[in-house]
Amino acid sequence: MNLLRKNDLIMLAFGIVLFAVLQGLISTKIIGSFWELNLIIIGINVIMSVSLNLINGYTGQFSLGHAGFMAVGAYVGVVLTTFFKLPFIVALAAGALAAGFLGFLIGLPTLRLRGDYLAIATLGLGEIIRIVIMNIDYVGGAAGFQGITHYTNFAWVFIIMLITLFVIKNFINSSHGRACIAIRENEIAAEAMGINTTKYKVMAFTMGAAFAGIAGGLFAHNFYIISPSSFTFLSSFNYLIMVVMGGMGSITGSIAGAFVVTFISAALANWPEFRMIIYALVLILLMFYRPQGLFGYMEITNMGIFRRILKRGRE
């Protein structure tokens, strides 16, 4: 059995144990509902940041419209569960499909743009999605969509998060993923090597958008109400911050980023007037001392500690 597979299995086992422990703590009420809610938010944020990392970190395409795709998934999801009474899982899948399809449609023309031009184009598209939703009275317009059934719980989020991590990790380690990384490193060189850059850029973008759609579905069914104001460009920034804080090009990093950002925000809930000031300072200081993010390009499975544990296990 090669090391990669083994790492997968170990991580899976670790995930299951973590899930069991957290779920146990939640059902015995040791983790109260506020922190349970925050665990759910962390899970959703992990899905968002890992899928954004696929676009920004691994494929090197600077996207600032991730919240827009989340909005699409969220609204498609709630329309299906509320108006059409479809099961939650179907709504999630449909949300992912819709967001992915939109990502494909948008990605095809815009991914020709480079760097900051792509950034502003995607930011604009995210805002356009939000403004369009705001003007559709069928889904409540600016006031938001009310009366959503509460389906999301910790188990749903955790399991979908594990699936997301697994899919994206395997994508990155596949030949497609390597093509994406090649594009990030040098697009012209990649093209010269015979990689169809447009195809892989659109592929990564579509996939990232689809997972954002799933995250949106989970998000929407957790809060009873969703409104377009939850999906502004500022929330896209927030996901970007998670990715960069953790390290572009590291899945472990995205998980850590999502965790740290959510945790800081929750822990500072008692000081609303200082929360954002402290958050801003943490952000700036972190970039000073670790401009490449907490994990840089590293994965936990590649680190010394992890390897040594593995080795010891083998002896």
Binding site: I41, G144, I225, S230, A269, P272
Partner: peptide, 22 residues
């Protein structure tokens, strides 16, 4: 006990949950 909705519906749920459970 003060809590902050951050001017967002979803965060309002979050803040209310904290007030109630914590």
């Amino acid at each position: 006990i003060e809590a902050d909705t951050k001017s967002e519906a979803a965060e309002s749920v979050n803040a209310a949950t904290k007030l109630i459970s914590d």
